[in-house]
Simulated assay, not measured.
Amino acid sequence: MNNPFKEILTSEDDIRDLLGYPSELVKKKVIKCLDIHCRNFISLSPLLFLATSDEQGFCDVSPRGDAPGSVIVIDEKHLVIPERPGNRRIDSLRNILSNPRVGIIFIIPGLEETLRINGQAFVIKDEKILDLMKAKDKKPTLGIGVKVEECFIHCAKAFKRSGVWESKSWPEENTLPLIPTILSDHVNSTEFTVEVIRKGLQESYEKRLY
């Protein structure tokens, strides 16, 4: 298949010529530890996105949602994300084993700025730490420990442009994608009909969140 992109930039200088350089505030806002502000932000965040890649550079971004306070801050350089039950693809965990570099975005509902953290991750099984992350009386089997290297606030422009917190901008419910239909078409197997997948998803969401 021919590449449809005809004007590809291949150097930072070319990009800088068009977009310019960051302001002094942007250059100086990065800190190297979890200060009181970062800790407070994390304690209020029920949703994060974890970016990983393997040793070949193949990438994955995984949403992680839980009650606020579920991510544990150990000290000013370390935090732990609980590994709750999922689909067992373990994309993030496999990537961390081969390439520990991770990027995280923490989100607080209604707040348009986000907290970004970059660092080095580890798959951990420290029982004392996992005990702190029990939910519904269930302890996570594993956790993702992160050694923090960079923390900074990301501006609100993406959320302002998207209007994601403004309910008037949301699509009508009857126009939303039908997930069981999509999955059935993608799997393309008579074994996994729309109804089979719908029931399986419902059971998973009701019985296997923790």
Results as ranks from 00 to 15, higher is better:
Glu191Ala: 06
Trp170Thr: 07
Arg208Val: 03
Ser204Trp: 03
Leu19Ala: 07
Pro68Thr: 09
Ile81Gln: 00
Glu76Ser: 10
Lys134Cys: 13
Leu115Glu: 00
Pro22Cys: 09
Lys125Trp: 13
Phe106His: 01
Pro85Gln: 13
Gly69Val: 07
Glu166Tyr: 05
Val164Ser: 12
Ile105Lys: 12
Val187Trp: 14
Pro63Lys: 08
Ser204Val: 07
Leu18Pro: 00
Lys147Thr: 12
Ser167Cys: 04
Ile105Cys: 08
Glu195Thr: 06
Lys139Val: 13
Ala158His: 13
Ile124Gly: 01
Val196Cys: 04
Val102Trp: 01
Cys59Ile: 03
Gln120Arg: 15
Val148Gly: 05
Phe5Met: 12
Leu19Trp: 03
Glu203Asn: 05
Pro68Tyr: 11
Arg116Val: 07
Cys151Phe: 15
Asp75Glu: 11
Leu44Pro: 00
Ile105Leu: 15
Asn99Arg: 08
Asn95Leu: 04
Leu130Ala: 10
Gln120Asn: 12
Pro177Trp: 04
Leu183Glu: 01
His37Ala: 15
Leu183Trp: 00
Gly65Phe: 01
Met133Lys: 02
Met1His: 14
Gly86Cys: 03
Thr190Met: 15
Arg16His: 05
Asp137His: 14
Ala135Asp: 12
Leu34Asn: 08
Ile124Glu: 08
Leu97Tyr: 14
Ala51Tyr: 06
Asn174Asp: 11
Leu183Asn: 00
Thr175Ser: 15
Asn99Lys: 12
Glu166Trp: 10
Lys207Ala: 03
Ile144Tyr: 03
Thr181Cys: 04
Val146Ile: 09
Glu195Cys: 07
Gly103Ala: 15
Ile108Gly: 01
Glu172Lys: 15
Ile96Arg: 00
Asn40Asp: 04
Val102Glu: 12
Pro177Gln: 08
Met133Ser: 02
Glu191Met: 09
Ile182Val: 13
Glu166Gln: 05
Asp137Tyr: 11
Asn3His: 05
Glu12Asp: 10
Leu79Gln: 14
Tyr210Asp: 02
Ile144Phe: 11
Thr181Asn: 06
Pro109Tyr: 09
Val26Tyr: 04
Gly65Asp: 02
Met1Leu: 11
Gly86Ile: 03
Ile153Gly: 06
Ile72Lys: 05
Thr10Asn: 08
Lys32Gly: 15
Thr10His: 13
Glu203His: 10
Pro82Gly: 10
Ile104Tyr: 03
Gly103Lys: 08
Ile107Ser: 03
Arg161Leu: 13
Ser98Arg: 13
Phe5Gly: 03
Arg94Ala: 13
Phe106Tyr: 07
Val187Pro: 01
Ile182Ser: 08
Leu18Val: 06
Lys139Phe: 08
Phe159Val: 12
Gly20Lys: 06
Lys147Met: 13
Thr193Lys: 11
Glu172Cys: 11
Ser53Ala: 12
Asp17His: 00
Ser92Pro: 01
Cys59Ser: 14
Lys136Glu: 15
Ile124Cys: 09
Ser98Ile: 07
Ser62Pro: 00
Ser45Tyr: 09
Leu142Asn: 03
Leu34Ala: 03
Arg39Phe: 12
Ser92Cys: 04
